[in-house]
Design a protein around this nucleic acid. Structure first.
Length: 491
RNA sequence: GGCGGCUUGGCCAAGUGGUAAGGCGACGGCCUGCAAAGCCGUUAUUCUCCGGUUCAAAUCCGGAAGCCGCCUCCA
């Protein structure tokens, strides 16, 4: 089975065939670093992180470029408002972004170029567009791209320029030859960051940055370009216009766009004041809970962030880790977090890939269907639990082998989704500690009560035992009596 | 006004022509002193509605209703 990818350009799922066998060039629009990142940024980044992981796991040599837009009107505006230097401001938010993405177990892309470090590339790009008659400089104003010079304008967003002009809600700039022409280079006002150029001191427009940087690192044509759905128009449409007008060949083969995150069924917006920042979500939930949530729905659909959904995801992740803990206790070898569980052709040849991995693979190959992948994970856990239930004390060696395959599959799947990267013990220990800190609870108190209850049970004083259990329940502590004694956790 | 998307059980959510995955919840059972966890079983004759195509449709076509997004900075 081979990979199929929904392509915004063609409007259907296309068979994925890279331009160069075995290699993939992928560019994803990164953030404009003028503010703290929100859960919507996290979704985009996590989704493309999974795409990146899946392509690598499928054996491709992937060059993954994700840029930072670090010069922009919004950055300058924010810098002026806060009295900071624009460069320092963007640096701050780049650091923040990195910290948050690291926390979310997002792999670093191959290259993370910044617009400000590619000004010369941008200037060269614009210069060539002007030479080719695809762009023009208006004296005392901007350099504009001329959409009339590019036949394919509108092919990504599936609209035609005339319709767009008719419905345009923007004030038309008299300097433009066509209302839909867009800025490539913009003159700087006094005090604004500026770079020297043949068109006077100024700064690049937003769209040209991505064309210039993708060309620098991935060439004139590459395989995948991604970003949020909102970027389809105008940003990606404009990138196509710039790059294809200059190079005369197809810019990108597959365009992938992710859907938005809603908050309690409302769009995130300034007016609603419901911007949900990654750092706040990270305080409330385990990073893997956040990832699992973001991947629980198909990447193209909108997803709703709300407490109920998050609680369900917590239960799901607990369930998976509980199984891992059980399996480990039963003596099934579990890879440690340091050992990366990668897909390999060797496994396939050796037959150590289980049926569950195959099922997962089918889901991921079908347009990165992580929701389907999650269903497979639960199936896998159920199979494993069933074996452990049958014979928890002394596993037959065949059962042990079977469990080994199940656990290996499970960890491979987790590795693609970027979850299950912890030891189960560490996972539950961290959870416990968070609960203790939250409720300001002294663990020795609990241990004392648990011990007292165990003694009560031994002497068949079940009334007392239940009383203690009820008492702990009020502290949201749940007891589990097992063959090896009583354990507790936060509910 | 233009373009696009969505509507699946109590909730979340897969499924794009062959007879409804999975999760949460609920209920019954096994297990347990009782629970919890885990496992087993039950929980959509049906996929917003109305027509049509087809041997066969949640899936394709036409129409209606509701919701949402983009067209302006936006993941």
């Amino acid at each position: 089975m081979s990979l199929k990818v929904y392509n915004t350009l063609t409007g259907k799922k296309d068979e994925f065939t890279p331009l160069e066998p075995g290699k993939v060039g992928m560019y994803v629009c990164g953030p404009t670093v003028y503010d703290t990142s929100h859960i919507g940024h996290a979704r985009s980044v996590v989704i493309f992180d999974v795409v990146f992981r899946w392509l690598k796991a499928s054996g491709y040599d992937v060059s993954y470029v994700r840029n930072f837009t670090d010069v922009d009107d919004k950055i300058i505006k924010r810098a002026n408002e806060t009295g900071t230097d624009p460069i320092a401001l963007s640096e701050k938010y780049i650091d923040e972004f990195h910290n948050e993405m690291d926390a979310l177990n997002v792999l670093r892309p191959t290259i993370e170029p910044k617009a400000t470090e590619h000004i010369q590339d941008i200037i060269d790009f614009i210069g060539q567009l002007i030479e080719k008659g695809k762009a023009y400089h208006v004296e005392g104003s901007d350099v504009f791209f001329s959409i009339a010079s590019f036949d394919g304008y509108g092919k990504l967003s599936h609209r035609n320029p005339d319709d767009m002009i008719a419905g345009a809600r923007i004030a038309v700039d008299d300097n433009k030859r066509n209302p839909m022409d867009f800025t490539l280079w913009k003159p700087a006002k006094p005090g604004e960051p500026a770079w020297e150029s043949p068109w006077g001191p100024g700064r690049p427009g937003w769209h040209i940055e991505c064309s210039a940087m993708s060309n620098r690192y991935l060439g004139q044509s590459f395989d995948i370009h991604g970003g949020g759905k909102d970027l389809i128009f105008p940003h990606h449409e404009n990138e196509i216009a710039q790059s294809e007008a200059l190079f005369g060949k197809q810019f990108v083969k597959y365009w992938i766009h992710n859907g938005f995150v809603d908050i309690n069924n409302e769009k995130m917006s300034k007016s609603l004041g419901n911007f949900t920042m990654i750092k706040d979500v990270l305080v409330k939930y385990h990073p893997e809970v956040i990832r699992l949530f973001l991947l629980s729905k198909h990447y193209r659909s909108p997803i709703d962030y709300n407490e109920n959904s998050m609680d369900e995801v917590i239960a799901s992740l607990d369930k998976i880790y509980s199984f891992m803990a059980r399996a480990k206790k039963a003596g099934v070898p579990m890879k440690t977090p340091g050992e990366v569980v990668e897909y390999s052709e060797e496994d396939e040849v050796m037959g150590t890939d289980g049926e569950d991995w195959e099922a997962f693979k089918a889901g991921m190959d079908d347009d990165f269907n992580s929701a389907r992948g999650m269903a497979t994970i639960f199936d896998t856990v159920k199979k494993g639990n069933k074996i452990l239930d049958r014979n928890p004390e002394a596993l037959h060696y065949l059962e042990k082998d079977r469990l080994e395959v199940i656990c290996s599959d499970l960890q491979k799947m987790g590795n693609i989704l970027g979850i299950l990267s912890q030891n189960p013990e560490a996972y539950f220990k961290a959870k416990k500690e968070a609960g203790l800190a939250d409720g300001n609870i002294d663990p020795s108190e609990i241990d004392k009560l648990v011990q007292e209850r165990m003694d009560a049970r031994k002497s068949k004083d079940f009334a007392r035992a239940d009383e203690i259990r009820a008492q702990l329940d009020e502290m949201n502590i749940l007891l589990e009596d097992g063959p090896a004694g009583t354990t507790w956790k936060f509910s």
